[in-house]
């Protein structure tokens, strides 16, 4: 898996991108097998959305990629790292992989700017001045440069999530993982976060996104992967998987998600 430089139209910045390759991944909690042999490729610069009902294993899969969950079997390659190699330098690998959580997980005891600089100075050993500059640029990028001195609890959920994205970007990641980034947000702030993610995608960032936002997946994702019961049921071009799903389970799921008020009427 080689790193490549990609520049997509509309994005001025050049991004170093790393791909992900997952082969026959298995993960169990006790006797409960949540991932039953998943294989998945994300090419450098590609945006892949994972969709599926809750409990389908998509968040677990995402968390295996940066080893927040330890897989039981299978192989994961991220950029030049083999995540599943027991001797892998986890911390070094994670520097390349940005993670955005459903619950934001900003550091409440640090202001917004420090949230974005603490790992730069402590992990990448950048000077405080350099880290401040990079953090400020990324805060501007997500539209929150003016809130650098605020503390997380003074921000709305959507603002906190955009800070979390800026925090991850400040490490210059080659891959971004999003774990249901808009699921904990008030509906009116979801759009701002999605706009930032859309912008990132256009700039050529490699992204693996667990989401329930079908419109976003359809518009932004290069590919969509539908998971259910710990397996990949269907995957392909976003337009096709969401617009014209082939598998009955995918069809059923999308019908429920796209029209929650829809009531099945038994046919005589």
């Amino acid at each position: 898996m080689n790193d490549v430089e990609t520049t997509k139209p509309g994005g001025a910045q050049t991004v170093h991108a790393a791909g992900v390759s997952i082969k026959d991944l298995r993960k169990s909690y006790g006797s409960n097998e949540v991932l039953k042999g998943i294989s998945l490729e994300v090419k450098p610069g590609e945006v892949v959305c994972l969709i599926g009902p809750s409990g389908s294993g998509k968040s677990t899969l995402l968390r295996c990629v940066n080893l927040l969950e330890q897989p039981n079997q299978g192989a994961i390659h991220v950029g030049g790292f083999e995540a599943t190699d027991p001797d892998v330098d986890i911390d070094k690998m994670r520097r390349k992989v940005g993670m955005v959580f459903q619950q934001f997980n900003l550091f409440p005891h640090l202001d917004v700017l420090r949230n974005c600089t603490v790992a730069q100075t402590k992990v990448l050993k950048r000077s405080q001045a350099e880290a401040d500059k990079i953090a400020q640029a990324n805060l501007d990028r997500v539209g929150l440069g003016h809130l650098a001195k605020r503390f997380p609890d003074q921000l709305s959920g959507g603002q906190q999530q955009r800070v979390a994205i800026a925090r991850a970007l400040s490490m210059n990641p080659e891959l971004m993982l999003f774990d249901e980034p808009t699921s904990a947000l008030d509906p009116e702030t979801v759009g701002d976060v999605l706009a930032v993610m859309r912008k990132l995608a256009r700039e050529g960032m490699t992204m693996l996104v667990v989401t329930h936002e079908m419109a976003f997946a359809r518009e932004v994702a290069d590919r969509v992967v539908f998971m259910d019961g710990g397996v990949v049921v269907e995957e392909g071009v976003a337009e096709r998987v969401i617009g014209a799903p082939q598998q009955p389970r995918t069809q059923e799921f999308l019908r429920r998600v796209l029209d929650p008020t829809h009531i099945e009427v038994a046919e005589d």
Binding site: N66, L68, D91, K92, R94, R95, V97, G98, M99, F101, Q103, N105, L106, F107, V118, A119, K122, V123, L124, A164, R167, A168, M171
Partner: peptide
């Protein structure tokens, strides 16, 4: 989540 966020940023 605090530990997960810190570890995800590459902190030992």
């Amino acid at each position: 989540g605090q530990l997960e966020a810190a570890r995800s940023l590459g902190m030992p």
